[in-house]
Design a protein around this nucleic acid. Structure first.
Lengths: 119, 119
DNA sequence: CGGAATCCAGTATGATACTG
DNA sequence: CAGTATCATACTGGATTCCG
């Protein structure tokens, strides 16, 4: 494709970057990765997740869980027959497709810390 | 390592996730990737970068540039001999180490859009 | 227990104008 | 041109309390 004028180039660039921004919207933010990891590591119940992550308060956790569920990364299951009703969160199969992304982020972040914050 | 008590497990989990959070802090946010990409694609001067990204205002751009420079992803060069003084931004070699991360984010984000926002 | 409701602070973002 | 100053607004994150 020929990119001779500024506008086309601009639109092209924006379109290219959009998927990256989409991905960042899903895993970005202060808590998403932490919450997801906690669930993947076996935390299932609201309180369990909450206490596994210092400084995380219930309001924020509630929102994070909703976001993650909307993006189909976790599943919320209600066990009605129990009393009091038991609710559990589990990671979906789909959540594990993030593995490569996480590995890359992890590797880069680790290296970056050494580089910028001194070894 | 034996993880028998909750605290140890919690700390372990936090430490593991920290690099990911570090990386997200660098490339996360609404504009970082856009600005960096624009520079990598050849925008060098402040105004050039600004006009290449719709809705981005100078105050925000100034901050993003500072952040990116602090993390050594871009370099700010002042050409004193010119008048008016010319200032140029270029991507560092180091910035290109983000390539794999970007590729993964891009691939996942593209797939995610198809999955969640319907094909 | 699993949240929702309320209130509040801090930061991010934005529009606009201005300066060296 | 390359920003900074100012003011306004939005969004995020947090503390606390309350409810079924």
């Amino acid at each position: 494709m020929l990119l001779t004028d500024g506008t086309t180039k601009q639109l092209h660039c924006l379109a290219q970057v959009q998927p990256i921004r989409d991905a960042l919207e899903v895993v970005g933010g202060k808590w998403k990765v932490l919450v997801l990891t906690s669930i993947m590591q076996g935390s299932r119940r609201f309180r369990e997740i909450e206490t596994s992550i210092p400084k995380l308060n219930p309001k924020v956790l509630a929102k994070e869980l909703k976001d993650l569920e909307e993006h189909q990364l976790i599943r919320r299951t209600v066990y009605e027959d129990d009393y009091p009703v038991r609710i559990e969160y589990t990671a979906t199969e789909y959540a594990y497709t993030l593995k490569q992304v996480m590995l890359e982020l992890h590797a880069w972040g680790e290296n970056h810390r050494r580089k910028v914050f001194g070894k």
